[in-house]
Computed example of a mutant assay.
Amino acid sequence: MGQNPNARTIIEQVESSGLEPEIHAVIEFETMTAPPASHPALEGIEIAAPAGSAPFALDGSGGTYHVLPDGRILLIDSEGSAGVVAPNFKEFIAIAAGLPGWRDALKFVGRQDVATARADWQAFIAKWKLESQLHQPWPYAADHLTIRTPALAREAIMNYFHAPSLSDPFGALYHAVNSLNDDVGVKWEGERLRLFGR
Rank of each mutant, 00 (worst) to 15 (best):
I45C: 04
E46W: 01
I47A: 06
A48M: 10
A49H: 02
A49W: 00
A49G: 01
P50S: 03
P50L: 08
P50K: 07
G52F: 13
S53Y: 15
S53W: 14
A54H: 13
F56N: 05
A57R: 03
A57S: 12
A57I: 11
A57H: 07
A57Q: 06
D59H: 10
S61R: 14
T64E: 04
T64F: 03
Y65C: 11
H66E: 01
V67H: 03
L68Q: 05
P69N: 09
P69M: 09
P69D: 05
D70G: 11
G71N: 06
R72Y: 04
I73C: 01
L74G: 04
L75K: 03
L75Q: 00
L75S: 00
G80W: 07
G80Q: 09
G80N: 09
A82I: 08
A82Y: 15
G83A: 13
G83L: 12
V84I: 14
A86Y: 09
A86T: 03
P87R: 10
P87E: 11
P87I: 12
N88T: 05
N88W: 05
F89S: 04
F89D: 01
E91G: 06
F92T: 04
I93G: 00
A94Y: 09
I95G: 10
A96W: 01
A96R: 03
A97N: 05
G98D: 00
L99Y: 00
L99K: 05
P100C: 11
P100M: 07
G101V: 08
W102P: 09
A105W: 02
L106F: 07
K107G: 14
K107H: 12
K107D: 15
F108G: 02
F108W: 11
V109G: 01
V109R: 05
Q112L: 11
D113E: 14
V114M: 09
